[in-house]
Design a protein around this nucleic acid. Structure first.
Lengths: 215, 215
DNA sequence: TGTACATCAGTGAACGCGCGTTCACTGATGTAC
DNA sequence: TGTACATCAGTGAACGCGCGTTCACTGATGTAC
């Protein structure tokens, strides 16, 4: 009966307030930033009294954690799409692996640039990731971190990278892309109106991979 | 007469309220985070009425920008100290350059881990760096970014690194260390109580340099 | 199929709060003569 | 050296604000019989 309920919006019960609040929160965070976000405003946007939110989330941090969690899921989805599209453009297993690695880095930075506030929610003070390691943040095989591990394995299996270079490469790769994403967000390196994000990012990803190759 | 004034604290005029407020802000940010910081609390801590702050800073953002700016200066100082100490431990110019590069990376990550909230102030929403490129944030030759450029040059002059690898290496190096610092801060990779920050960082710096060497 | 009742998911008023900022003010300082 | 006066750097009261959260409540739903 959930669907029926969500059709008539004038009903007393909302149908799926938790999801509605999460997506309202996302909208508002995009508008005012994580710091400017309030439960009251989210509730108002959904058309519900502020106190209703407390049926679904323990508190403000709970709502923000939901936003962050959803962010990890979206990021993983986008990365996965980009990777499989990239793989299709190549024949050899090695070329596919390289293309997937590049696509993943691009997807990561693009996600951050296109969703700066959600990205901040994911890694900031309230972020899902500040409570627990990233590995646990999504269902295990879907987390961005798991995707990274897999593509690094793929690079090793296809001999693009030696087992020695593969070792602990997660942290190096993640640091590089995460740093680039944050630097782009802070506008501290350059105003990315003047800059082709994809081009700069691809440059960095390739140098990263180049370093791994010869490790 | 500045010094005389700052001696008697009971005087009507404070002496150097701007500096006192900045350092109070730093203390409070370390305690409650950037988001929890308020001008009123800083003024109270200094023992001055809230409105007095407006003689010295245009608004809250102005005070936070001062904190951020001071952060860049401190970071540069600490990095410089670490680098010159590291250089002393080696004889050849090449070894000195390598040691200085490693020391710089270590200093960067250590600064972030030891001053997480100031680091956040530096690169966050209010950060000095969100208004203008990092290059302008300190006096030109003292900025952390300038130090990075110089040590990369040094690596090239001593032939540790080829001119091709030197090209645009700033962004790669900075991304890597900045990402590592942020990842450590978010606790999303690991709880750094269980981890030797210096050891992990040194591992990453070395892999970064290794990649540059063979570029 | 109809009814009683427990449970669920909302309401809306109220709480106490600290905030950023403005404003007219005043005490202290320094300078020109 | 002394005095008048402009300027500087504070005060403290007040403004209006939106916030997170609690609480007793009520309308809607679903289930047992």
């Amino acid at each position: 009966m959930r669907i029926a309920k969500s059709k008539r919006r004038t009903s007393y019960h909302h149908g799926d307030l938790a999801a509605a609040l999460t997506s309202a929160a996302l909208k508002l965070i995009a508008r005012h930033g994580v710091e400017g976000f309030s439960i009251r405003e989210a509730a108002t946007l959904v058309g519900v009294s502020p106190s209703a939110a407390y049926r679904h989330f323990a508190d403000k941090a709970g709502l923000l954690a939901a936003v962050a969690k959803q962010g990890f899921a979206r990021l993983a989805l986008e990365a996965q799409d980009a990777m499989s599209a990239a793989r299709k453009r190549h024949r050899s297993a090695a070329a596919k692996a390289v293309a997937a690695f590049e696509a993943q880095g691009l997807a990561y930075v693009n996600f951050a640039v296109n969703n700066p506030e959600q990205f901040q929610a994911m890694f900031g003070r309230y972020g899902a990731s500040s409570q627990q390691p990233v590995h646990n943040v999504c269902s295990t095989d879907q987390s961005p971190y798991e995707l990274l591990k897999r593509v690094l394995d793929e690079l090793m299996f296809t001999k693009v990278v030696t087992p020695a270079a593969r070792k602990d490469a997660e942290l190096l790769a993640w640091s590089t892309m995460h740093g680039l994403a944050n630097i782009m967000l802070s506008h501290s390196f350059m105003n990315h109106d003047n800059v082709n994000v994809d081009q700069v990012t691809l440059g960095i990803v390739r140098r990263l991979l180049h370093g791994l190759r010869l490790d």
